[in-house]
């Protein structure tokens, strides 16, 4: 198998790439690029969990990698692309509140403080790189927030949220492995949320009647169409 030291280096490289992807998301405005960046980011996380598996030999990591691959690299980008197509909007008109440069600077500031906190409290623990890794993960969460509040469109906000979610996933990969059931439930919840938000995003741009008939697609799945 892979050499653990090499794996660790690989992990560091992957981490840097993940953060880079988030930074790219912050700067980009067109939807297709955003979606593919998100898919790429998720894929990097899949790779990361495989890399971690190489060190820990915990089969759970592989399963997580598999379901992440399925949901975040395939299903969610698929839904997003579909919605974007129906919304007929190609790009965010402008950034609100903060320019991309400012946003990235803000992320750096956030990283500084997060690192300051976690290097303090995690210093006594054995894993040497842990505080850096953990800080990067939480910084990813904050970058997701920045994405949300610098964009007006609901659908780009969703990408921000998804970035945050990836940050949390990253965090949990390094800090503690939760049970599989919970991971699955969380992903289900995430997908439901994306679907609902996508529906609403659509609803904002269309008439309320159309929105309600879309909404009742859920109803159609569940039962019968009301007359």
């Amino acid at each position: 198998m892979i050499d653990p030291v090499f794996a660790l280096d690989l992990i560091k490289i992957l981490l840097v790439l993940i953060v880079l992807s988030a930074a790219l998301i912050i700067t980009r405005r067109d939807f297709i690029a955003l979606t593919s960046l998100y898919a790429a980011q998720s894929f990097l996380i899949v790779l990361l969990s495989v890399g971690l598996f190489a060190i820990d030999r915990n089969p759970l990591l592989l399963i997580i990698a598999a379901i992440t691959l399925l949901s975040k690299v395939v299903i969610i980008p698929f839904i997003l692309t579909k919605v974007q197509r129906r919304l007929k909007m190609k790009r965010e008109i402008e950034f609100s509140h903060l320019s991309p440069i400012g946003a990235i600077l803000l992320a750096v500031v956030a990283f500084f403080f997060i690192y300051a906190l976690f290097s303090g409290i995690l210093s006594g623990l054995d894993k040497g790189v842990l505080s850096t890794v953990v800080s990067l993960a939480i910084c990813l969460v904050f970058m997701g927030l920045i994405i949300i509040f610098t964009r007006k469109q609901t659908i780009t906000n969703v990408i921000g949220y998804l970035t945050m979610e990836n940050g949390v996933l990253l965090f949990s990969l390094f800090v503690a492995e939760l049970s599989l059931l919970i991971e699955v439930l969380i992903l289900l919840d995430l997908i439901m949320l994306i679907v609902l938000v996508a529906l609403m995003a659509f609803g904002i741009d269309s008439s309320i009647e159309e929105f309600h008939s879309q909404l009742n697609v859920l109803d159609r799945w569940l039962g019968r169409e009301q007359r």
């Binding site: 939480i138 969460v141 997701g144 927030l145 949300i148 609901t154 906000n157 949220y161 945050m164 979610e165 940050g167 949390v168 965090f171 949990s172 800090v175 503690a176 939760l178 949320l193 609902l196 938000v197 609403m200 995003a201 609803g203 904002i204 929105f211």
Partner: peptide, 26 residues
């Protein structure tokens, strides 16, 4: 719809912070 979106985004983004805390607790 706008209001519901506000609710979802504010509650869910904050809840992600909670999840970080939960993982730390774990």
């Amino acid at each position: 719809i706008d209001v519901a979106l506000k609710y979802i985004f504010i509650a869910s983004t904050s809840m992600l912070f909670s999840f970080i805390g939960i993982i730390l607790l774990f």
